[in-house]
Design a binder for these strands. Structure first.
Lengths: 346, 346
DNA sequence: TTGTACGCGTTATCAA
DNA sequence: TTGATAACGCGTACAA
């Protein structure tokens, strides 16, 4: 409640001097008055107004992170990284959900600008043929111009340093891994339509020799649907590579519900290694989400430093994949009676 | 970039008038000048400074939500609820992680106050014998005094309206449900030591006739450890009721890894019904996390309205529980050879 | 209906 | 080493 002028009056010192001692200014102040001011501040319970400070400094200690959905562990992990290092430096983190798309991102960006946010982190991927992409790019440029540091944690269509991992390579590597396990007929469950990240992951799958693809998404239900698509076919593939963990888990659960043995009959993998992946023992690709968040925060704290950064990813083989040789091959040997039956639930 | 004075100059109108038309003031303004101002604002791309506005109004359109860990789906769900209705009303949501405890909460509270946050939502539970509880209570009182609306979404030791569900009843109901399934020997995996929520849930278990309890926590690893404690005993219980979903999943996974059939040999349940619970088909209690977040936001938007609210919870029977009669009873019939063997993995 | 002027709490410049 | 004082951008009595 107490303001600088209160302190000033209480200590019998000018308001300017109070400001100097109360905020690590390099301006010299005599030890005597310094203690006087400190004491007054202590007694009156002085707390600087972040608002007033930001108004004059033209920069608040606020970091905005724009995500699609904070409930999605992918984004939560990023947000936590940002918050972690931000809080350590006295910054507050604003989390903005933009599930609605670029339009919502734009409005959040503007709002963040109105608060003179020191930095803005775009956690999600951009989309193809985005009608408001240009408008967003302009707004980003303006925010940058006004001193805000903008960082992108995925493929984006505006000018900002990127801190990311190689989506294409991640998808390639997990596909190759499955292939190395001896699986030939591999189906890829696509990510959301139009997302750059989806395109990248699909490309990785293709480069690794994958051919079969079916529509999917990043949500559990998308995975369930994809599994049903597969179940409706005459024959199941050897393995399913889903565009992300949550979809993979959807596939996994639907298959198990249908009585399919995973990984006995079919292998399933995801990408991202979010917490739920560990819970279900999903083979996936560990991706530096938390570290990306941390680095993004460091980027805004340290000012716009340098160009893009590509962080490493890593295979995380777990319990939903198995080498083909290690299981009863349904094709090279005569089909057993049990080979067809499991697909009907109950 | 353009400020009110810019508009004022551009439109040849006083700065006060500009303010009046640009912020739905009820002060009368002639239609002529109104359009003049609007046009100028449009041309110069006027955006009000949230900072300056907050400074003079003594209240920013910021809602702070203090959670233990945003990666925890329990809190993410709450945060999303807050953000959802907040964003709809032009408010920004600050998410603060206070994993470190009350000390961290206190520092976040202070920071939020420095930004003149309109409201502060405490998502997590308080703890017993908390050394800084009193200090926090004082800070909360001060924040309240300064016009901020403070809401608690769990048991707390300070004065603030509460929006919550009945933890005791939730634990009681799930335990009773398991009991109704015919299970007698039920073990409760405790929540984190010292948390009010832990005490409440434990009490519910006890009231439902439960007796056996083992140490646990709210994390996956805690559940894994609890499972190992159980595996080390001579005999497994009929069912395990864990203090929350994540611990339950830890128990579940460890048991399955040990070759135990869930729910064939043992039933497992959680509390909260977070997303991962659905992923693994965990029987649990659905709890109004999202709605609590939404209501909390409404509470801060509508000012301090009324007293505590207790929202309903609901049983969510799924695939990790089974009626005792429906499975081979290991005790009333002669033990079969397969009854003992599953416990050794591999 | 419009304009003037003060205050919100800081930082920063310039004198003293 | 210290102190006035002008911004920062806005809301709002009060006056015109």
């Amino acid at each position: 409640m107490a303001s600088l002028s209160d302190i000033s009056r209480h200590a019998g010192v000018s308001i300017a001097t109070c400001s100097r001692v109360l905020n690590g200014s390099d301006h010299p102040v005599s030890e005597a008055t310094r203690t006087r001011v400190m004491k007054a501040a202590e007694e009156l319970g002085y707390a600087p107004s972040a608002l007033a400070r930001a108004l004059v400094t033209r920069s608040s200690r606020i970091i905005g992170v724009i995500v699609a959905d904070i409930v999605d562990p992918y984004f939560a992990e990023i947000a936590r990284g940002v918050e972690e290092v931000g809080a350590g430096m006295g910054y507050m983190t604003m989390v903005c959900s933009a599930k609605a798309g670029t339009e919502a991102e734009l409005s959040h960006l503007r709002q963040l600008r109105d608060y003179h946010a020191a930095g803005i982190v775009f956690a999600g991927s951009g989309r193809h043929n985005d009608p408001s992409a240009h408008e967003l790019a302009d707004a980003v440029a303006e925010a940058h111009h006004r001193g805000a540091v903008v960082v992108a944690l995925a493929q984006r269509d505006f000018d900002a340093p990127r801190i990311l991992f190689d989506n294409e390579a991640a998808a390639h590597d997990i596909t190759a891994h499955v292939r190395d396990l001896g699986h030939e007929r591999i189906t890829f469950v696509d990510g959301p339509e139009g997302l750059h990240t989806s395109v990248l992951r699909r490309a990785g799958f293709t480069r690794a020799g994958g051919r079969d693809r079916i529509p999917g998404g990043f949500a559990y239900e998308d995975g369930v649907r994809a599994a049903e698509t597969l179940l409706a076919r005459d024959e199941l593939p050897d393995a399913v590579v889903a565009a992300n963990d949550e979809a993979a888990i959807g596939v996994l659960m639907r298959f198990r519900e249908a009585g399919i043995d995973v990984p006995g009959e079919i292998s399933i993998t995801g990408i991202d290694d979010t917490r739920p992946a560990r819970f279900v023992g999903l083979t996936t690709v560990t991706v530096p989400l938390h570290e990306m968040g941390r680095r993004a925060a460091h980027a805004v704290l340290g000012g716009p430093n340098g160009g893009d950064v590509v962080l490493p990813h890593q295979l995380a083989p777990r319990a939903t994949t198995r080498a083909r040789s290690a299981r009863s091959d349904r094709r090279s040997t005569a089909p057993t009676p049990t080979a067809a039956s499991p697909r009907s639930p109950g």
